[in-house]
Design a protein around this nucleic acid. Sequence first.
DNA 1: TCTTGCGGTTGATGGCGTCCACGGCACCTC
DNA 2: GAGGTGCCGTGGACGCCATCAACCGCAAGA
Lengths: 154, 154
Amino acid sequence: MDAINRKIVGHLLRDGRATYQEIGDAVGLSAPAVKRRVDLMLVRGEISGFTVRVAPEELGWEIEAYVEIFCRGNISPSTLQRDLAPIPEVVRVDTVTGEADAIVHVMAGSMTDIERTVEAIRTHAKVDKTRTSIVMSRVIDRPPRAGSMNGEVP
Amino acid sequence: MDAINRKIVGHLLRDGRATYQEIGDAVGLSAPAVKRRVDLMLVRGEISGFTVRVAPEELGWEIEAYVEIFCRGNISPSTLQRDLAPIPEVVRVDTVTGEADAIVHVMAGSMTDIERTVEAIRTHAKVDKTRTSIVMSRVIDRPPRAGSMNGEVP
DNA sequence: TCTTGCGGTTGATGGCGTCCACGGCACCTC
DNA sequence: GAGGTGCCGTGGACGCCATCAACCGCAAGA
């Protein structure tokens, strides 16, 4: 991804509905050139689509939690993927270094949903125990910034 | 937010660049009606803008970590906000129940960035100790879904 | 030097965003 | 019940935008 594409992405991060013409003016290209680059980034998977930013409560996700999971033996990412993907409340799963084996980010509509979801996570063969931290307040939640991309001038 | 707006948002979550006409067809409204609703949701803050979905590595964020922080005494969300907001690598901060007082999500360009960022977090008066989990692999990372909105009568 | 291919521009056209005026509908007041 | 009022969707008009095809310049390689 070259410097121009990064500028285009930076622009789209700020305004995902910006017109190609507007972006073109900002980066010094014509609208069709911008479109061609964006389409290419889409097929290459460098960007995966466009969305709207919504506060989770607006979608009915009133409660969220981080669930650290500890496994018997070791667990492969693919197993984790297979086991947890079917649970809709699971928003994100990362394998991590440190005490826990993975951190699961859960969003649910109510406390009972959280309870049920954690239970669903526990009842997998390899999961030994879990440690749940309920989110009390979102203190900071930043939209992803266009990377400072070591050595670059925005 | 009524049922129609939720359908509109659901549509925009899947495709943030969908035309108003297309959305209108999907929800049974005309294009101007959809635009008026979207604009209203924007000024009301129910949605906060549009973006592109980018893989973090494309932006130069090669490494991320979860940092649990433990404080001396108790800490207010506003203090946390004030102290951590200036650190650009801090993507997200939640106060949580359980052992730790807060969980900080950090994205950085390199391991040394992580180290520096964790150090920046530690050197705050109230922070007693931290526990860092480096992300090894992102197993699941779902775009937010339109809520199932428990118990609603349209 | 000639060729080949990538990437940008130009120009044309159909569709879309965007604004305005109008009309129905529910709710409230007299 | 009549009339007023505010909300919300529709229809139409206008200008801009997306989109595609054709063309052009330039760099790399034979």
